[in-house]
């Protein structure tokens, strides 16, 4: 009985876990498969017809898709940079400095994450309309919204990294007559950097993927998710699956490269 329990503990859980993981990948497999689908001459766009390389060879064929992709990348880049800078500064304040209103600030950072996107999006829209900007919604209003919802996630990510940092390392540097600037750039910053990088990646993917908030505040500007939504009624062009699969592969490469880099650095430090 005891041994049976042990066996279950050892293998059942990992098997079930892998099954859950497979479930999470079914849509990705379908998207990858459909990126090779030849949809010409068929009315049913939600069924695999015949194999073709065409979608991968002409990814920009659908009208307006690559323009929307460019808009999304631009917004995501700017939103990521601004949110990462503001969020990192705020994390330093929250972890390293005591000031009045600190707990209020923590709450203010938590709240956007506890607010449904539809509420955040509609309240921004209400503000823009009340401010007389109802006719000029577009790139700028999307950007404001994206920076807003990325900000909290950046703070949470960087704050965790910063709080876990051993402050003795900084004290040691100061003992060795490094001034504060040197200590920051040569000790603190490199140690926090992986957290900042992770936060930036998270912000980029949040911004790139956002639909609900963007849809309310975009005016006539079309981002990639909005292009997908708009074409979903008619049946999405197969090239959308190409973009989805390509994004997935590119980010896997980035994550893998980061991981290998981190391992190599750790090895080098260990050998010293």
């Amino acid at each position: 009985m005891h041994r049976a329990g042990n066996w279950i503990g050892k293998h059942l859980m990992i098997t079930l876990g892998i099954l859950v993981l497979i479930y999470m990948y079914i849509p990705n497999f379908v998207v990858a498969l459909m990126s090779f689908n030849d949809s010409s001459g068929s009315r049913n766009l939600y069924q695999f017809q015949a194999f073709t390389w065409d979608n991968w060879l002409n990814p920009c064929e659908p009208n307006g898709m690559c323009e929307s992709l460019r808009v999304s990348v631009e917004i995501a880049l700017v939103a990521t940079i601004v949110a990462t800078i503001l969020g990192t500064l705020a994390s330093f304040a929250l972890v390293r400095h005591r000031f009045e209103g600190r707990s209020t600030m923590n709450l203010l950072i938590f709240l956007p994450m506890a607010t449904p996107e539809i509420v955040m999006g509609s309240s921004l829209l209400a503000l823009f309309v009340a401010a007389g900007m109802g006719g000029s919604l577009g790139f700028v209003t999307i950007l404001i919204a994206h920076i807003l919802f990325c900000l909290s996630f950046v703070v949470v990510t960087v704050r965790t990294r910063l709080a876990g940092l051993d402050s003795n390392l900084e004290k040691a540097a100061m003992d060795l007559y490094a001034n504060e600037w040197q200590t920051f750039w040569r000790i603190t910053f490199p140690l926090v950097f992986p957290g900042i990088l992770a936060a930036a990646l998270l912000a980029f993917s949040l911004s790139f993927d956002d639909f609900i908030i963007t849809n309310l505040n975009s005016g006539t500007t079309v981002t990639f998710p909005m292009f997908v939504w708009g074409s979903a009624q008619r049946g999405i062009p197969m090239q959308v699956n190409v973009i989805g699969t390509a994004m997935f592969l590119i980010s896997l490469v980035i994550v893998a490269a980061g991981e290998i880099g981190a391992r190599r650095r750790a090895k080098m430090l260990a050998q010293r």
Binding site: A93, P112, S123, A126, V155
Partner: peptide, 27 residues
């Protein structure tokens, strides 16, 4: 220093999260 570091984020959250909620309520 703490205030100066937190100010930009606090301003952004106040202006584009709290004020909009108020605006949502009045609307």
């Amino acid at each position: 220093v703490g205030y100066w570091l937190i100010a930009p984020a606090a301003l952004w959250l106040g202006l584009f999260f709290l004020v909009p909620l108020l605006s949502l309520f009045t609307t």
